[in-house]
Amino acid sequence: MPTAISIKDLHKTYDNGHRALSGINLEVAEGDFFALLGANGAGKSTTIGIVATLVRKSAGSVEVFGKSVGANSYETKLDLGIVPQEVNFGLFEKVKDICVTQGGYYGLPRRLAEERSEKYLKKLGLWDKKDQQARNLSGGMKRRLLIARALIHEPRLLILDEPTAGVDIELRRSTWKFLQDINKSGTTIILTTHYLEEAESLCRNIAIIDQGEIVENTSMRVLLKKLDTETFIFDSREDLLTAPQLNGFEIELIDSHCFEITLDKSQDINEVFSLLDQQGVKIKSMRNKTNRLEQLFVSLLQQSKIRQSQIETEKEAG
């Protein structure tokens, strides 16, 4: 599979001495839906800033579809669409003008820029707002306008920096569906997000960045396998006064119809069902508790911090 983006030994130290990136290596295959996770200040936005040429790298290299990224790299910029974390369009401009103008910056003739604006504003549910000033849009609509603007030149690689931050659940899910559709049509997507459920639902591969270093880079499937425990939520058919008592399992009653059971790697879900059946507990439905990635994320960051403090201790000692 050809590489959409290749980052090698990327360093960034800001003028104030803050070291944001300490030698990042990352490859994302063409067609991938890739998550870049990290806590605030971990280096995600700096990495994206360097790819977008808004931040100058201190050392290392970045290639987009095999072409080096620099402030004047015309071809890489044509292949790249950026959805920034902060709203950065003119708030007094009309919604459609924002998209058409961006099309012009990418060399689209006006008629084509207008057609594309209509296409993406309709897909993102903003067409009826096309003649409104952008400042009148809701927070979620502004975020979707950022996505429409980034797609106007139909880039092969779309990078989204927390695209659904502060967006309500319904809009978030419709945005996910839209992103899945454009990924299926061939656009490579890199996503940073604080919603770990979002990364888990959408992305096939994942990298976790902490203190300017990649601490994990693997497929979502492999990463989730590393979970030591997994929690399932059960809905019972009848009222429960207390949580069922299953020997060897950690169970918590959430309400009179709902309880959760945490299993470690050695335990089997079939055993849970047979024990519940023996106790006469009828199960209506069962679902995975959607914080699996969150558990992993926290544990990986803790491991990274421990490693970092060990290195510092060794340095001080040696």
Partner: peptide, 18 residues
């Protein structure tokens, strides 16, 4: 004002020569 509101970034990320 474009620099202040950061919408100058629309231009800076695009391939428009300086």
């Amino acid at each position: 004002s474009q620099k202040f509101q950061r919408n100058i970034e629309e231009l800076l990320v695009s391939p428009v020569p300086n």
